[in-house]
Design a protein around this nucleic acid. Structure first.
Lengths: 213, 213
DNA sequence: CTGAAAATTTGCAATGACCCCAAAATTTCA
DNA sequence: TGAAATTTTGGGGTCATTGCAAATTTTCAG
C-alpha cells in the first residue's frame, strides 16, 4: 500500500471524467456538450467535475499536460556544441520523420483539430499554452546562458524558437485537417522545416551553444 | 441630409456605450464590471448593449479597430527598393521615436495594460487580434509578391514580421506597466529594435522588395 | 401634418459556465 | 470501531449571452 485507496480513486475518477468528456467533445464538438452532460455521463455531480478541473477547457486539454515544457526539455538536452535552436530543429525533425503522434501525425488528429478550430475557448487555451511554452523556454535559456535579468536576448530567442515550433504545428494541423495522410504530411513538413531553418539568422542558430564537456 | 438622423443617433449611442464601458473598466477592472452595470450607466437596456457589441470584450477593444491591418498597410506603403520587413521596422521606429500614443507610449497606458493583464478574456482577445494581423499580412504579402497559393513563404514571413511587431509591443507594455516614463521606454525600445533587426536573417530582411518605379 | 411601415429598444425568460456553502457519504487511522 | 479528515453532492446564486415578442421611435409617402 505505497499509496492510499483514496489517492488511487481520485486519479481514476479524474481520468474517467476527462476521458468521457473528450469522447463527447470529439463526437459532438466542444460547445455542444454541456458540463452537466459530462457529469451525468461520468456518473458524477457537476460540482465534482469542477472539483477536478478548473474550467471546461481543461477537460479537453488534460492529456496535453507536459507539452508546454517540451521545448525547454529539448534545449536542456542539447548536445555538446549544439545550440538551442539547432537542438529544437533536430528533435522536431526527428519527431516529424518518425511520423510521431506526439506532433499530431496520426489518424484521427484531424477530428481533434477540428474541435479546437470550432471552439474559440479552446483556441484561446492553445494560445495560453504557447505563452507558457515561451515563458518556460525563456527561463531555461536564461539559466543555460546565465544571461543578466535585463538581457533582452533570452526573450527574443525564445520567441524565435517558439515561432519555429508553432509554424510546424500550425502546418501539421492544417494539412491533417485537410484530410492528408500522416506520412504525406510528414514528408511535406520536413521540406517546410528546411525553409524555416533557412529563415533563421546565424545569431539565432548559434545562440546558447553548449560548451564542451 | 447626407445621413439620416437614425444613423447619427446609432453611432452616438454606440460610441457612448463604449466610452462609458471603457471608463468603468479602467476604473474597476474588466471582470468587476457587469454588462448590466454598463447598460444602466449608459441609460440603455442590456439588450441594446448586445445590439451593438457581440461580446463584453468588444466594448473594451472598440477603439482598437483598424489595428489589425496596420502592418499590412505599412507593407503596402513601403518605399521603392524597400522590403516588407524593413518598411515595418522603419515605421515602427518612427512611431517609437515620436513617442506616439499609437504604440502605447502615453501616460495612462499602464492602466490600460493592467486591465488587459488581469482579464483572461481580454488577453485572449488580444491574441485574436495578433492572429488577424498575421492573416491580413500574409494575404498582403501574397498579393504583393504574387506568390503561388501553396508557397509557404508568405506565411513564414508574416510570422517573422508579426514577431517583430509583437516583441516591440510586449516590451512597451511591460515597461509602461512597470511605471516607466514614455520617453524612457521609447529610448529603450529603440535599442531593443536594433537587437531585433540583428536577429533577422537577410532572407527575411530582403523579402518582398518593391520593384523600381 | 399624419398614419402606417421599418428599424430600434426593451422586458422577459432561458441556457449554461462557474462559484459558495453546508449537509451527506466515504476513507483513514488511532 | 468511531471520531477526524476528505470527497461528493445538492441547492442556491451570479453573470454572460441569446431568443422572442411587445413597445417605442424614426422615416416617409400621401
Amino acid at each position: 500500500m505505497a499509496e492510499g485507496l483514496r489517492e488511487r480513486k481520485k486519479r481514476q475518477t479524474r481520468q474517467y471524467i476527462s476521458d468521457v468528456a473528450t469522447g463527447l467533445f470529439l463526437e459532438r464538438g466542444f460547445e455542444a456538450v454541456t458540463v452537466a452532460e459530462i457529469a451525468e455521463a461520468a456518473n458524477v455531480s457537476v460540482n465534482t467535475v469542477y472539483n477536478y478541473f478548473p474550467a471546461k477547457e481543461d477537460l479537453f486539454f488534460d492529456r496535453s499536460a507536459g507539452v508546454a515544457d517540451r521545448l525547454a526539455r529539448w534545449v536542456r538536452g542539447r548536445d555538446v556544441g549544439e545550440s538551442a535552436a539547432r537542438a529544437v530543429l533536430r528533435e522536431l525533425r526527428s519527431e516529424v520523420e518518425a511520423v510521431s503522434p506526439r506532433v499530431g501525425l496520426m489518424a484521427g488528429y484531424d477530428r481533434f483539430m477540428r474541435v479546437i478550430h470550432e471552439a474559440p475557448a479552446l483556441r484561446s487555451r492553445l494560445w495560453s499554452l504557447q505563452q507558457e511554452t515561451h515563458d518556460i523556454l525563456e527561463a531555461t535559456l536564461r539559466e543555460e546562458t546565465g544571461a543578466a535579468a535585463d538581457d533582452p536576448l533570452p526573450d527574443l530567442m525564445a520567441g524565435q524558437i517558439c515561432w519555429v515550433h508553432q509554424a510546424v504545428f500550425v502546418t501539421i494541423g492544417r494539412e491533417m485537417t485537410a484530410g492528408r495522410k500522416p506520412a504525406e504530411v510528414s514528408r511535406e513538413v520536413l521540406v517546410l522545416m528546411d525553409d524555416i531553418e533557412d529563415l533563421l539568422s546565424e545569431k539565432v542558430l548559434n545562440y546558447a551553444v553548449r560548451g564542451g564537456a
